[in-house]
């Protein structure tokens, strides 16, 4: 029952994310636009490039979809509305999201195209920059809740949301999650202007539709994860828990999609050097501060 409900939520959420993305790029709010685009995409021929690695080419979009789906399995939408409340939930979200990298590598290597391959390997470099910034803020969150259970993490924020308790961790995790679902300004693997679509370049038709759907679900999953880790999950006055989760998730998704539109694309070298020279020390400081707060402040 929970499974069906959450899949339905995910579908609706991804659709709304698509509407918002369309709105941030084109400037017009049209509810029907993603459906039309999807129909057009499904109607087109799905071209196969010359001498592809068929196995990778076919697996990549499905793996992207799957990793978003697995990550959503441990995210609670309401006190009882969760697919599996794993004892290592916070770690499992990470584990599932790392496979985004594997999917993009496959999509880059599979079609035997130069742009796609550059895009795929670029994402590996991008992972080097953001991976630590995903894990270390989560460590600080877990330090406060004293449990890896995601429901426990939400309950630990009853008094004060983590965004106020550890704003530094929130900022780092937010930026890292932008990089994780390769939204602008971190859209290096699909860089529209310079790589002609990058990993997406050789995909068309149904395969491209699956790929895009996977990415939309990824954005929705990340927004939901931010809500669970930093914005108090389902807690809020008056409205039922599920409504609060959905409102917060969609707000976060809007902010995520809007934030990148205002900035130029970051260079890979800058991303790496900032990630390691600024990001990781800040994440360590965040852990220190949270440790101090947890131990000293009752």
């Amino acid at each position: 029952m929970n499974l069906i409900l959450i899949i339905a939520l995910l579908a609706v959420g991804s659709y709304l994310v698509a509407v918002i993305e369309n709105w941030t790029i084109k400037g017009k709010f049209r509810l029907a636009a993603p459906a039309m685009a999807a129909m057009a995409m499904l109607g087109r021929e799905s071209v196969l490039s010359h001498k592809p690695d068929r196995l990778f080419f076919e697996t990549a979009p499905v793996l992207l979809l799957l990793s978003a789906l697995l990550a959503i399995a441990t995210i609670p939408f309401a006190p009882d509305l969760i697919i599996t409340d794993l004892a290592t939930g916070a770690l499992f979200i990470n584990a599932a999201l790392v496979y985004v990298l594997v999917a993009l590598l496959m999509a880059g290597w599979g079609p035997n195209g130069a742009y796609a391959m550059i895009g795929g390997w670029r994402f590996l470099g991008q992972l080097m920059a953001y991976a630590m910034l995903v894990v270390m803020p989560i460590t600080a969150v877990v330090m406060r809740s004293e449990s890896l259970l995601t429901t426990q993490i939400v309950m630990s924020q009853d008094d004060l949301w983590n965004i106020a308790y550890q704003p530094l961790g929130f900022a780092l995790f937010f930026i890292a999650s932008l990089a994780l679902c390769f939204l602008p300004p971190f859209d290096l693997p699909i860089a529209k202007g310079e790589l002609a679509g990058g990993v997406e370049a050789e995909y068309s038709g149904v395969r491209l539709a699956v790929f895009r759907l996977g990415r939309l679900m990824l954005i929705f999953t990340l927004a939901a994860a931010i809500v669970v880790f930093y914005l108090g999950g389902w807690s809020g006055p008056f409205l039922p828990p599920l409504a609060w989760t959905i409102i917060k998730t969609m707000t976060v998704a809007v902010v995520m999609l809007l934030a990148g539109q205002l900035m130029p694309r970051i260079r890979e070298a800058h991303l790496l050097s900032w990630g390691w020279k600024i990001g990781i020390p800040l994440a360590l400081i965040n852990i220190l501060i949270v440790g101090f707060l947890v131990l000293m402040v009752p």
Binding site: L86, A87, T88, L91, F92, N94, A95, V98, Y99, L101, V102, L105, W109, W121, L124, L127, A131
Partner: peptide, 21 residues
Amino acid sequence: AEFLGVLQIMMMATEMSIMAI
């Protein structure tokens, strides 16, 4: 061994991708 299993799945994805490059 839930923690170890999830950790293994997480760590190896990065490690082997680096191996690939």
